[in-house]
Write a protein that binds this DNA or RNA. Sequence first.
DNA 1: GGCTTATTGAGAATAATTACAATGATCCTA
DNA 2: TAGGATCATTGTAATTATTCTCAATAAGCC
Lengths: 173, 173
Amino acid sequence: MPPYTAAALKAELNEKGWRLTPQRETILKIFQNLPKGNHLSAEDLHHELRKQGHSISLSTVYRTVKLMSRMGILRELELAEGHKHYELNTMSPHHHHHMVCVQCNLTMEFDNDTVFKQALKQTEKYGLQLIDCQLTIYTICPEALRRGYPGLPENWVCNKAIAQGADLPSRDK
Amino acid sequence: MPPYTAAALKAELNEKGWRLTPQRETILKIFQNLPKGNHLSAEDLHHELRKQGHSISLSTVYRTVKLMSRMGILRELELAEGHKHYELNTMSPHHHHHMVCVQCNLTMEFDNDTVFKQALKQTEKYGLQLIDCQLTIYTICPEALRRGYPGLPENWVCNKAIAQGADLPSRDK
DNA sequence: GGCTTATTGAGAATAATTACAATGATCCTA
DNA sequence: TAGGATCATTGTAATTATTCTCAATAAGCC
Ligand SMILES: [Mn+2]
Ligand SMILES: [Mn+2]
Ligand SMILES: [Zn+2]
Ligand SMILES: [Zn+2]
């Protein structure tokens, strides 16, 4: 897959009467340089921007990730954490889904072509465009620890037992 | 499927060292009496409660729907609207997924056993419990193409969508 | 360069979570 | 079964997360 250039972004924006701004270009770059498997919250992104010397307002950060999600460039992830995360929407070759512990918010990515095909089938049924599809699986990780199932990543460990109560602190900040 | 009684809720809560409160019991009833296909935001729920003569604080409403989602009793829906919605998590017989327009938030429910089975496969692979799974498909609806979305430029038009006369029900506020 | 208007930044408004002291559900003991 | 201890839960208020308003700015177009 060829990289999504600033020129391509500009073309896609202009086609809809929108504009390419330095802010949008910068934010796109941040996500493109993000190691695979990472996702940023709006705050994370804002901090990263400042760290790199850019001064983009938090409002613009929020607006931009929302816009890019609507365009299909980013994916907006709801991982039971209290705030949203964003990542590049690479429909291929690295389209994936998420499994998340509802207690400690531990998140695991996984691939599944079958789900993708089902989503495609669903949209094509109505002649619609598939912008993105996300299967989010909610589970609880301590269960696996007790049963001692193999194949589970070492760090897939709940730091707060389910019996801890409703007011659980966020794991990821 | 037998109805989920207050006694069952109490048992499940107590097992984890939690408690059944009048607030929790009342909120569960609200969802159980909700017409199929409906989903409530925290604000919606709060209003409904007051309308029925209950005075439960908004904080408790938020806490309760979050807790019940973690327990697998409710589903927390992220439908690109700016706020979350909740509905009973009836894994069967009415487990379903959502297709949502990223422009106007028009939402369509659909069933798909294949997706459910894939989710089950993914959790069983690690010996985990499947609390819930949600496939959310992001698209652009024909109406959005025709009229554009209020608040967004009129020429926010997806060139790839075909826009057939498919009837897409249930637009939420 | 000048016009149009989408976009930005700052702050207000709304959505959602959290801290804390008062309350009350559960359990224990008499 | 009643009374009391324990500590989860509630309501209020504060804090955080996200969206919105609006005047100033600047991207795209000629
Ligand atoms: Mn985070
Ligand atoms: Mn709503
Ligand atoms: Zn966990
Ligand atoms: Zn729409």
